[in-house]
Amino acid sequence: MIKLCRLDAIPENGSKGFTTDKGDFFAVKKAGKIYLYENSCPHMSINLEWQPDQFLDNEKRLIQCATHGAQFLMETGECVVGPCEGDHLTKVSYIIRDDTLYLPD
Results as ranks from 00 to 15, higher is better:
residue 32 G to N: 15
residue 34 I to D: 05
residue 53 D to C: 08
residue 55 F to M: 04
residue 41 C to M: 10
residue 29 K to I: 04
residue 44 M to D: 12
residue 39 N to Y: 02
residue 80 V to C: 11
residue 66 A to K: 03
residue 66 A to S: 12
residue 75 E to K: 15
residue 25 F to S: 01
residue 60 K to D: 09
residue 29 K to A: 08
residue 24 D to F: 03
residue 42 P to E: 08
residue 27 A to H: 01
residue 75 E to V: 13
residue 72 F to V: 11
residue 30 K to T: 12
residue 17 G to H: 07
residue 57 D to K: 07
residue 32 G to E: 13
residue 68 H to M: 04
residue 43 H to G: 08
residue 65 C to H: 00
residue 77 G to R: 08
residue 65 C to E: 02
residue 57 D to L: 06
residue 28 V to T: 10
residue 31 A to V: 15
residue 67 T to S: 03
residue 62 L to R: 10
residue 45 S to R: 13
residue 35 Y to T: 04
residue 63 I to C: 06
residue 51 Q to N: 15
residue 25 F to P: 02
residue 55 F to P: 03
residue 18 F to N: 03
residue 51 Q to T: 11
residue 60 K to E: 11
residue 26 F to N: 01
residue 45 S to F: 13
residue 38 E to S: 07
residue 48 L to N: 02
residue 54 Q to Y: 10
residue 71 Q to R: 14
residue 22 K to E: 14
residue 23 G to F: 03
residue 31 A to Y: 15
residue 77 G to P: 09
residue 55 F to H: 08
residue 21 D to M: 05
residue 28 V to C: 07
residue 54 Q to I: 08
residue 16 K to I: 09
residue 42 P to H: 11
residue 47 N to K: 00
residue 80 V to G: 05
residue 65 C to A: 12
residue 46 I to G: 02
residue 44 M to E: 13
residue 22 K to F: 00
residue 28 V to W: 01
residue 30 K to D: 10
residue 22 K to W: 04
residue 55 F to Y: 13
residue 77 G to E: 10
residue 54 Q to N: 10
residue 58 N to R: 14
residue 43 H to D: 11
residue 77 G to N: 12
residue 60 K to V: 08
residue 22 K to S: 13
residue 30 K to S: 12
residue 18 F to L: 03
residue 54 Q to C: 14
residue 28 V to G: 05
residue 18 F to D: 02
residue 61 R to V: 13
residue 80 V to I: 13
residue 63 I to F: 01
residue 54 Q to E: 14
residue 71 Q to K: 15
residue 19 T to Q: 07
residue 70 A to H: 04
residue 43 H to A: 07
residue 18 F to W: 00
residue 47 N to Q: 12
residue 50 W to K: 06
residue 17 G to C: 00
residue 40 S to R: 11
residue 69 G to E: 13
residue 28 V to N: 01
residue 19 T to C: 02
residue 80 V to L: 15
residue 31 A to P: 04
residue 74 M to E: 10
residue 16 K to N: 06
residue 48 L to F: 05
residue 29 K to N: 08
residue 58 N to H: 14
residue 65 C to D: 06
residue 70 A to L: 08
residue 27 A to M: 04
residue 68 H to W: 05
residue 51 Q to K: 13
residue 70 A to N: 05
residue 53 D to I: 11
residue 39 N to T: 08
residue 36 L to H: 01
residue 16 K to Y: 07
residue 33 K to H: 11
residue 74 M to T: 10
residue 43 H to V: 02
residue 66 A to M: 09
residue 21 D to C: 06
residue 35 Y to E: 05
residue 68 H to P: 04
residue 61 R to L: 14
residue 75 E to C: 12
residue 78 E to T: 14
residue 65 C to F: 02
residue 53 D to G: 03
residue 75 E to D: 15
residue 81 V to S: 06
residue 40 S to A: 12
residue 23 G to E: 00
residue 59 E to Y: 15
residue 36 L to T: 08
residue 72 F to R: 00
residue 33 K to F: 03
residue 48 L to S: 03
residue 47 N to T: 07
residue 44 M to C: 11
